[in-house]
Design a protein around this nucleic acid. Structure first.
Lengths: 217, 217
DNA sequence: TCATACGTCTCTGTATACAATGCGGCCGGC
DNA sequence: GCCGGCCGCATTGTATACAGAGACGTATGA
């Protein structure tokens, strides 16, 4: 879906325009837009149609705050419920992630980051938790691209390794502690990230991100 | 909306049928159904249409688990962020709740219960948290009706009063502790509640609940 | 010159028609 | 008698047409 801020914040999305661009009629367009509204990617005003959500610092802050509590809950549950084989697999995944080239795009790096967290959420055996986290991740993805741009990679890898170690030790409290810090540190930088985000949006960066490549950097 | 298990689990919802009953055409029907799918009230299969979600114990369990972590996060934040005036108002609300008649319907009692928790979520100043909790509450409401049916009222009121006391004391840890227990106790009974729920559904109870009255009991 | 009111026009909201897919029943063959 | 294929029907998926509401522009009057 084209909702990775390829549309500018508050830009109105005329249905007829989207029809021409996507070569389908208004009915399926409206169905898709409606779903995107309930998932928080668009806002809707009666008789005025759909528009792109604003890039709002408070909203992103709130999402990070919710994400923090859910990720902490997930990792606690994972410490109880994950099998040894799953933790072994997670270890393999982290090794593979570290092998990614130094010049990998932020889009790819954030993808690996999300994949790590999603695996843990999967270990919680709670599909609702996983579902909500996926939605939040999609909504804050843009900000995580920005955040990843300067030197976050090393710290991320270190902290992920710590989480894994605590999981292997089945130490739920330690897991929660690391995860809280891991996300709180991002949360503290939101305002700066948002400011940077506006610049990116109006420079058109990331517009091709849905193909897996970033034009930023 | 008619999604308080007036439809039986897995019952197929034919669009044309709903059109006749609601006196509108298929287009707005489909839009509403689509939204209900993304909110978790219906399931959708391509070329087979919409059907009522099953009353699934695992799903309800997961929702309670997510709710627990979010409510705990909310009450922690509320302990930091609520104003004294807001806590005073919450106290008024609890007094008023206690004044509700002993023969009040479970629908009304659960409504008061939800209102208490929603107020706390509001004090967290986190609108995303509030939004997700509202959705979860709507999805587990049916089970809370069942749960409220036998003598839960007194315990609920006691525990709510304890939460308020901890909030007034600005003791976030104590708040979290009480809230965790408050919800965990419900979670432990899910399986029994679900079993009872099936009986209610196939007996047609609660079918008039959206008008504010229960036919059960 | 500015404000207000009216008219037009674009875009949304809803209905309806048509196409396509899947399911069930029926008939024929083994 | 049972299994498999085929045909018909019901239901979903998509397109399009029409109606209604809101916004913008213009014109007129103070």
């Amino acid at each position: 879906m084209a909702i990775t801020y390829q549309f500018r914040p508050l830009e109105r999305l005329a249905e007829a325009d989207l029809c021409r661009r996507l070569k389908v009629s208004r009915t399926p367009i409206r169905e898709a837009l409606n779903r995107l509204v309930t998932e928080g990617f668009l806002v809707f005003t009666p008789n005025r149609g759909f528009q792109c959500r604003p890039l709002d610092a408070k909203e992103i802050f709130d999402l990070y705050e919710v994400r923090r509590s859910l990720e902490v809950a997930a990792v606690r549950l994972a410490a109880e419920r994950a099998t040894d084989a799953e933790l072994e697999e997670l270890d393999q995944f982290l090794r593979a992630s570290r092998a990614a080239p130094a010049e990998a795009s932020v889009v790819d790096l954030v993808g690996l980051d999300e994949a790590f967290h999603e695996r843990i959420a999967g270990f919680s055996r709670n599909s609702e938790l996983l579902h909500i986290l996926r939605n939040i991740n999609a909504r804050i993805r843009f900000c995580r691209w920005i955040d990843m741009e300067n030197g976050r990679r090393a710290a991320t890898q270190t902290e992920h390794a710590e989480v894994l170690a605590a999981l292997v030790a089945r130490d739920a409290e330690r897991c929660a502690e690391i995860m809280t810090g891991h996300i709180t540190r991002r949360l503290d930088q939101i305002v700066d990230v948002i400011r940077e985000g506006y610049a990116r949006i109006y420079m058109g960066a990331y517009a091709g991100a849905e193909t897996g490549r970033s034009r930023a950097g």
